[in-house]
Amino acid sequence: MTDAETPEFMVRAENVHKRFGRTEVLRGVDLAVRPGEVMCVIGPSGSGKSTFLRCVNHLEKIDGGRLWVNGRLVGYRERGGRLYELREKDVARQRREIGMVFQRFNLFPHMTALQNVMEAPVQVKGRGRAEAREQARALLERVGLGDKTGSYPAQLSGGQQQRVAIARALAMEPALMLFDEPTSALDPELVGDVLEVMKRLALDGMTMIVVTHEMGFAREVGDSLVFMDDGAVVEEGNPREVLANPSHPRTQDFLSRVL
């Protein structure tokens, strides 16, 4: 499946390995996400779940295995049975269709909420400013921040910042959204608004991989749940079933400590 029109899987990982120096962070991850599916990834810290997410949009280079997004190899081109590293420009092009939301928001602090959302469409897609502004306004409206367009990130609460970050990622009209512990840096009372936005996004049919500690969200919104530990997928299945009856002892142990 190299360049299929409508790929069966939005994301497919085959035996993905990643090392940082001598530490093996990912030891053969196999995963598949179908278009429109929401996959939640849980696991103890250091289990490699964030690293895997960062591999999906090539913020980290994988050391072994294969990773496809939307039917295309991530970071490489395969020709005649050989792998060729992609040029920076082509990697950037691949990333356009993958939105990413970070734990620490990473909004651009020198730009207003509106400018944050407009930046990539104007700079990367070459869209006209007026058009981009309209789109950004609509997106901020959609995440419930229509009245905050002129605010700088420092003037917004964590929850509001994270919703701007979601709008910013959506502005590139991605086919896939990656969420890296999007609510872990938030005060408890602000988590709900962000999860609500994500839930509506899921209902609209967005394909999502969500690394999270929010078991309620996983149960309610997730189509599948993956439990990772020590750089590998330990258990995978329907969220309600996995959360209620974990089959693997390590999953049982983890869930007994977080639930």
Partner: peptide, 8 residues
């Protein structure tokens, strides 16, 4: 990273 993730 955020800029790269947006395709810059």
């Amino acid at each position: 990273e955020a800029a790269c993730a947006l395709g810059m």
